[in-house]
Design a protein around this nucleic acid. Sequence first.
DNA 1: AAGTGGTCTAGACCACTCC
DNA 2: GAGTGGTCTAGACCACTTA
Lengths: 228, 228
Amino acid sequence: MQSAEAIKREIIRRINDRVWQPGEVIPGELELAREFGCARTTVNRALQEIANRGLVNRRRKAGTRVALNPVRRATLEIPIVREEIERTGAAYRHKLLHCSREHPPAAKRREWAPGNRRKMLHLQALHLADDKPWVYEDRWINVAEVPAILDVDLKRISANEWLVQNAPFTRGDLAISATSAEPAEVQALGLPLQSALLRVDRQTWSDDALITSVALLYSPGYAMRSVL
Amino acid sequence: MQSAEAIKREIIRRINDRVWQPGEVIPGELELAREFGCARTTVNRALQEIANRGLVNRRRKAGTRVALNPVRRATLEIPIVREEIERTGAAYRHKLLHCSREHPPAAKRREWAPGNRRKMLHLQALHLADDKPWVYEDRWINVAEVPAILDVDLKRISANEWLVQNAPFTRGDLAISATSAEPAEVQALGLPLQSALLRVDRQTWSDDALITSVALLYSPGYAMRSVL
DNA sequence: AAGTGGTCTAGACCACTCC
DNA sequence: GAGTGGTCTAGACCACTTA
């Protein structure tokens, strides 16, 4: 046994098979390195990855403990809407429904940019797969942070895509929830009232300045998928 | 500059500031190591982490390229329901609504365990925060994989919690969607018909054998949160 | 065939934290 | 103070991919 990958698997096996009990301290890196016949660095790497998965907790001097309640982490990939649609084999199209410079509602302004009283760019758009509504987008853009957006033809390239390529962020928040369709979305998506929609709210920031805040409302039947 | 962390930040800065353009090949590890005055290993570590974030793509011989469409990844932490509720400061309680050994519906059986015609354990439970419904759980458990579950008093400890601690899995799927409340859940959660609910479906597997499949229906207003 | 990233080693020093 | 993990180094060899 000499590869970090194999060592990782063996350590995980011992945790799963209760060779090392939950809450118990496992042998130190040096001892494991001797057992596996490899350098300490290699064991260190394996253990760091296991700790990242939440299976063990590590502290200097205290050692490495098997987690009592292994935290399950799932990684969600958040693609550009166009790529997500094209990956299904459908033709992508988007329709700009609304675009104007407005003052955001007071509540949102306080949350996003307490000091900024300027107008923001407010967009509403629909992304379609094979001409069927896929997701409704309601977006605010902080023009002060990305002035170049004003020169973009948002009918040709979606704000979603332009921002991903041109407005790097240092920080972002994500919230996934469910909501009943309201009139504006109902009309855009062509749905019965009260349909249950998956809603994704995303804000991205450049340091402390908001770049954009977007709400995405997916057509019924849509699911975000991931592996554990 | 000598720490991998600082090098990572500097490389990310150069990508964000377009010092290295999207699609462009960046200098090799040896060259960067010379520039930053550190070992190649250190640059390698920084670049691997950046690649994990999706900001660059790396291929042997071809080098490291700045990604054209940086993939945004979000890590969702999936806590035990009890811990999630207690973290809000509320008192946790759970109520077992249904528990029996049944044959799963044919469609589900085919999806989960085509070769297994035996009965599974079917549970329905409600998790409450300060005695208010928080999430409704509908779960199937493959008794063949975790026979010990039959000796557990599921009124005392929730299946959710027992399984996390006692049934390690090697693989899991996750799907997040929105759904309209149906009669069984409406009654359990005390909701008006047609409420929009966030639904999380999770299956966990031990190699190729299903351990458990669960659907969680969260009360209105609940959101899964994460950072980008 | 050659150049790039992927990985491992052996050793060192440091930083944290428990005792 | 001592023991643990965290990190860096300098070097080596390997694996893959492109030219």
